[in-house]
Design a binder for these strands. Structure first.
Lengths: 232, 232
DNA sequence: CGCGGCTTTGATGTTCATCAAGTAAAGTGG
DNA sequence: CCACTTTACTTGATGAACATCAAAGCCGCG
């Protein structure tokens, strides 16, 4: 009897390229040592500075990574969907302290994999290590490019960019969806105030580019939005 | 006779933690396959999109990494000093194309190490791989934090932050030094226009916080500059 | 049902980009 | 080496974009 089938990790592992390089023993050690936790929408998963000896991997739901600066303002670094590689960026710093805070923006299930296990895989399994590095590189550059792109845009451009990204990366290109973030959070993500995010939404609504009703949003004129995103 | 002593890599390797995990054979293969190139101040080392099968490592001098967007504007991502780990972030993307442009801002010596060699080390040498990942993580987060910090500051804060960083990371805490960047480049780094960078310098000069004469600069009131950097 | 947080709009002021124009410095060719 | 051209630097004036402040409506929740 194949013991690995008993472990629910299997499903995750199939979905995620991250684990595609593990052999059966390595796979089993993840199965036996991982911890799974559930969080309700709005709950804080971990706060920056807290001790952390796990790679926290998103199985389902939606989370945000953010930083609080001394000025009290919050800056959202990334919104993560299940099985994306952002978590790789949050581990293996000098200290074992969390670099970023993390909160569920929808009901979420998270998997905690001990870091010493990951470390062992990196040390012993070259394919795993190389894949890890490739993904780390990719996600780092994506985040950095995102910051630069955002910086290059004005208010309308940033909001348009955010909406298009959201539709593409989280809602598979659908034009109607629920906004997972509050206006305030969108501001924290794109570097604008809540009021101005709302003003941009209102303008887009009046210009019939979007339909928006509370959290419900529909992109009516994708081409216009794309133009505004490129330069708005 | 110790053949490794013949290779000038040795000095680099001693200085750089990056190679501290290589064994003698791995070390020798770097020695024999690396290429060294020199660039004059202002010369472009590589442009984004060009084919690149090397890890380009800075031995001496000073370089900038930057991106040109469709709007024609240039965004400087990082200024690198010799032996820092930023280059690790520029390799192992899907394509073998350079993600960022790179130019010498002082006369520089660069070492080109074939990527397939680095790849082999990662695959076969766990310590090397783990060290690579740790450094990659560290530098990525540093760059990201930098973007967030810059975003949180106004013009004066950004210029102050830039000057303090420059003094600390490049000039070992000295208060008198030559600005390695033009006013325009400083603007491209901190996300402000050339004119406003100059205005901030002029203000700081009138307030006796700095002395500035062309490229020559002296930090007179470090505490004030730090306050401005933190906010305002 | 009333409180607090989220949303919305308007009015106002600050900050910064843009435009313009002039000076200084640095590179170029005769 | 000097005239010439170009590039970098500097200051001021103006306007646009955005933050801030204020007030009111909405919604969910205890």
């Amino acid at each position: 009897m194949d013991k690995s089938k008993e472990c629910e990790c299997k499903e995750c592992i199939i979905k995620s390229l991250f684990f595609s390089n593990l052999n059966i023993d390595e796979f089993k050690s993840i199965c036996s040592s991982k911890i799974q936790k559930e969080f309700k929408k709005g709950e804080i998963i971990i706060e920056q500075g807290q001790s952390l000896d796990f790679l926290i991997y998103l199985k389902s739901g939606l989370v945000k990574y953010y930083i609080k600066l001394h000025d009290g303002r919050t800056y959202i670094i990334n919104i993560s969907v299940p099985f994306d590689d952002f978590p790789l960026l949050t581990v293996f710093n000098e200290t074992h302290l969390a670099r970023y805070s993390m909160a569920a923006i929808e009901d979420s299930v998270l998997c905690y994999i001990p870091l010493n296990l990951i470390r062992e895989f990196i040390m012993r399994n070259g394919n795993f290590a190389f894949d890890f590095i490739s993904k780390l590189n990719y996600i780092s550059c994506k985040i950095i490019n995102n910051f630069i792109l955002i910086r290059s845009k004005n208010l309308r451009g940033r909001v348009a960019f955010f909406l298009l990204n959201l539709a593409k990366t989280i809602y598979n290109g659908k034009n109607v969806f629920e906004l997972p973030l509050s206006r305030k959070e969108i501001g924290e993500l794109i570097g604008m105030t809540t009021e101005n995010v709302i003003r941009a939404f209102s303008e887009f609504r009046k210009e019939k580019i979007i339909r928006i009703n509370g959290k419900e949003i529909e992109i009516l004129e994708k081409e216009k939005l794309e133009k505004i995103s490129i330069y708005g």
